[in-house]
Amino acid sequence: MSTPLVPITENTFILPLNGNLTDERFEKITETVISSINISRADYLILDLSGLGTFNENTLSSLTTFSSVQEAVKSFQKN
Score class of each variant (00 low, 15 high):
T32K: 08
D23S: 11
A72E: 15
T64G: 09
L63Q: 02
L45K: 01
N11H: 15
D23Q: 10
R41C: 03
D43S: 11
I14Q: 10
L21E: 11
P7S: 13
I29R: 05
L45P: 00
L17I: 07
Q70R: 15
T30N: 09
R25E: 13
L63S: 05
G19A: 11
R41V: 01
L47Q: 01
E27D: 15
P16E: 06
N18H: 10
F66M: 11
L47E: 03
S2H: 13
S35A: 08
A42C: 04
I29P: 09
K74G: 01
T30G: 03
L47Y: 01
K28V: 15
E57M: 09
D48T: 05
T22V: 06
S50V: 04
E24W: 01
E24F: 04
T22K: 06
T54M: 04
T65D: 07
D23V: 10
L45N: 01
P4S: 11
S62I: 01
T59C: 13
T9F: 06
L63D: 04
S50E: 08
F13M: 10
E31S: 12
E31P: 00
S36L: 00
F66L: 15
S61C: 02
T9A: 13
S62C: 06
I8C: 08
L47V: 11
P4C: 02
S61Y: 10
S68M: 06
V73E: 08
E57P: 00
I14W: 01
M1N: 07
E27G: 05
V6Q: 14
T59P: 00
S40D: 01
S68Y: 04
L17T: 08
V69K: 12
S68K: 14
N18F: 05
L21D: 11
P4F: 02
G51Y: 04
S75E: 14
E24S: 12
I14D: 00
S62D: 08
N58F: 03
Q70I: 15
S75P: 00
R41N: 09
S40N: 12
F55I: 14
M1I: 05
I39A: 11
E24M: 07
S75M: 11
T32R: 06
V6C: 07
S2C: 00
N38G: 04
L63E: 03
I39N: 06
E71N: 14
E24Y: 08
T12E: 12
I37L: 01
L5P: 05
I34C: 02
